[in-house]
């Protein structure tokens, strides 16, 4: 038989949850900022790769 345990949180539990949520939210905001930066790096690297490829093509054409 399962004895009913008191699982109710105290009245001021909301403040504790809010404090930990603030920490989590700030961390998530940081993750979003880093994700934005990462996608920018990817975009820029793709662009640079295209420029380098075009350069190589031009070089082979002029050599031929």
């Amino acid at each position: 038989m399962i004895v009913g345990a008191d699982v109710t949180l105290p009245d001021n539990a909301g403040y504790v949850v809010a404090a930990y949520l603030v920490f989590l939210v700030l961390l998530l905001i940081y993750v979003v900022i880093m994700a934005t930066k990462l996608s920018r790096f990817e975009r820029e690297l793709t662009e640079l790769n295209e420029i380098a490829e075009k350069r190589d093509e031009e070089r082979t054409r002029s050599a031929a």
Binding site: L9, P10, N12, Y15, V16, A19, F23
Partner: peptide
């Protein structure tokens, strides 16, 4: 302070 004191574990280390 009871349960509320649990904020210590995030606030003070920060």
């Amino acid at each position: 302070q009871g349960f509320m004191q649990k904020i210590l574990y995030v606030h003070v280390p920060l």
